[in-house]
Design a protein around this nucleic acid. Structure first.
Lengths: 248, 248
DNA sequence: ATTACTATTCTACGAGTAT
DNA sequence: TATACTCGTAGAATAGTAA
């Protein structure tokens, strides 16, 4: 997802960050709330209302009855759970928003075990020094990209800067073959081997490339048949997510 | 899983139960710990060590650096994470136990969305009043069970008492067809319709049965080609888990 | 039985800082 | 830069009950 939100404030370098728990965004529910939703779902709370007293729920989540009761109230307030008071016990049903939370959680666990056929890498758009344009103009590269990726590259690269955690995904990327772009020489100099992986940004085809050497760099370069910056209206500092096909 | 652990203390009816967080059992990790493991797995901590500073980890789990650091120490103490100090940042790898936690979590979410092809129902063994033996001796039932379940029933039923939360699974069960055992009459009386679902306990075949009427009962009856009590050495009050095939 | 209030305990978070 | 200590405190969890 390309987000055109330029960060005006230049990332105030606060050392210890306050948690920033915002209302409304459903995906960032607290782990305890996700656990509670999961347990309700496991006894059928997705398909229809389940009859679940706060005492029984307490056993399910390993807490006291009071905490269980409070959790249900909180989930209801957050809109993740729908509640109806039965004659005795309450009836609980997971709401559309709650289902969304569960789906995202399930997707995360699927990604873990799908051995990363697809890697979603997030980063921020960075301004290169224009060398990308120079490299992508080389005939030796252009013809190979055409052959091995199936598109004519726009002369230029989009640089994406990765934070510390995302850097680890580059190691996964490098562990997979991708497409090898061979080195070649001109009269002037030699151009080194490059690895390329088919990718997409918002369903539009592109490719992620990394030079064979030079690990530990914080930047992933992206090429495409079009000018990505203008296509997505990207500015330096914008957040960007690229979906890299790691398998084929 | 049939557990032959008879509970000596007759379930002290404490109102507000203390959480009972025990050491060593890996499946009951705190939700926060599972969330942390998940995030590490998502950047490749299953495949190999990932380089992750406590500050970067803090961003990942939405906490301060101090909390992130503490979480890593706790996960390491619990044996869910293996840590090695690199020259700068630490290297984290999810341990075999940690992977087990992730697998169980993934399995739970899979169960939620696989629409319950299999229902795992837990309960405690309950002594019936011997009527099960009377019913299962009726020729009208025996021949139908033979036809529709594929085994000769042992004359008797094992009664499993369900707690409030597990009761909801019976609603799911009833929502699926199972095998219909038709009503029939003898000279003396009429025997009503019964629903049966193929099932297994510790991989040994059996079936769960419910009378067509009489909802809201806390008991699930189990029949099998053998005497389950002696097969598994079950006593009243023992915990029991049955795997019911809800699809076919 | 239930749910859920108020009061109290205590855990766990983050500030400050050492290393 | 890192990691991780101590410590004050906010908020979560439970006890005791009310409804």
């Amino acid at each position: 997802v390309a987000q055109g939100v330029a960060q005006a404030t230049k990332e105030t370098t606060a050392k210890t960050v306050p948690p920033e728990r915002e209302q409304s965004h459903p995906e960032d529910a607290a782990p305890q709330d996700k656990e509670a939703l999961k347990q309700i779902a496991l006894i059928g709370g997705v398909q229809g209302p389940v009859e679940l007293s706060s005492t029984d729920f307490a056993r399910l989540i390993g807490s006291s009855q009071q905490t269980a009761s409070r959790r249900i109230l909180q989930l209801t307030e957050q809109g993740l759970l729908q509640r109806e008071m039965g004659m005795k016990k309450q009836l609980l049903k997971i709401s559309a928003e709650g289902l969304e939370v569960l789906k995202q959680e399930a997707a995360a666990y699927r990604r873990i075990f799908e051995l990363f056929q697809v890697l979603n890498i997030r980063g921020t758009v960075q301004s290169g020094v224009g060398e990308g344009k120079y490299y992508m103009s080389q005939e030796g590269y252009r013809t190979q990209f055409q052959q091995k990726l199936g598109f004519d590259v726009y002369p230029g690269t989009l640089n994406m800067e990765l934070d510390g955690a995302e850097m680890n995904k580059l190691r996964i990327l490098r562990a997979h073959p991708g497409r090898l772009i061979e080195s070649f020489s001109t009269n002037e100099r030699t151009f080194g081997e490059v690895h390329a992986w088919k990718a997409s940004i918002d369903s539009r085809p592109c490719a992620a490339i990394l030079p064979k050497r030079s690990h530990h760099k914080r930047v992933l370069e992206i090429i495409a048949p079009e000018h990505l910056r203008s296509r997505f209206g990207l500015e330096d500092g914008d957040e960007l997510e690229i979906r890299v096909e790691v398998s084929g």
